[in-house]
């Protein structure tokens, strides 16, 4: 464990807490893409198949449980909660996310560490996570204005993988035969996808104005 990875995990945890706060405090999920939440639930379920077989550390196990439980809780809440579900922007959240699932799975069959069930699903979860934010970014683009908590949620979600890139650079220089190129390349793509969001987020922060995405 290094400071970059710990900062990344904490940033990821903060993004989840901000999302839960937004939904719980406002009893609304307007501006949140259910499809991105479903993709993230799938990412964690397929990435942590080794949850009960490979014990890394207490921290690792607890964080995996938190990520799985929170992503499922958000999906269930957005689908079932009678008040929250009414605020879901169903007609704006129309990204065909099944294509993202299919593309990630095909790529995982072709490019993986080892052609085994667990490694294919691990690679699938890595590729899917890189693309999972797309429905959310498209929804924000369509809805134009971004409320503070949603903006902070997306910002921290994007920032966490940027910390992981620093972690991989650090590990590359401090550990022999460290090669996580699947996670590195995918993490780079993932972070780049946030580039324009980060730009508009920074502008709104600099001008102390409400965040506006160009329609």
């Amino acid at each position: 464990m290094n400071i970059f990875r710990f900062a990344g995990d904490m940033t990821h945890l903060i993004s989840i807490l901000v999302l839960l706060l937004k939904i719980y405090a406002t009893k609304s999920c307007s501006g949140i893409s259910l499809k991105t939440q479903e993709l993230y639930a799938l990412v964690f379920l397929t990435r942590y198949l080794d949850l009960f077989t490979d014990f890394i550390s207490v921290y690792n196990t607890i964080m995996k449980l938190v990520f799985i439980a929170s992503s499922l809780a958000v999906v269930c809440c957005m689908r079932m909660h009678r008040v929250v579900r009414r605020s879901y922007d169903k007609d704006l959240d129309t990204f065909r996310h099944y294509f993202l699932i299919l593309a990630s799975f095909v790529l995982a069959l072709l490019v993986n560490e080892k052609f085994t069930f667990q490694e294919i699903f691990w690679a699938f979860s890595i590729y899917l996570e890189a693309l999972a934010i797309l429905p959310q970014l498209v929804l924000l683009q369509r809805s134009g204005n971004v409320d503070n908590l949603t903006g902070q949620y997306v910002f921290f979600l994007g920032a966490y993988r940027a910390f992981y890139i620093l972690n991989w650079i650090y590990r590359y220089f401090t550990e022999q035969h460290f090669s996580r190129w699947i996670a590195c390349v995918s993490g780079l793509v993932q972070t780049v996808l946030y580039a324009d969001f980060f730009y508009y987020y920074f502008i709104s922060w600099k001008n102390n104005a409400k965040m506006q995405l160009p329609a």
Binding site: R5, D9, H12, R47, D50, D54, I56, N60, M63, K64, F67, E113, W122, Y164, N167, R180, A183
Partner: peptide
């Protein structure tokens, strides 16, 4: 070591 757990990250 090759058998080290490749996926020690979240």
């Amino acid at each position: 070591s090759p058998e080290e757990n490749l996926h020690d990250e979240l």
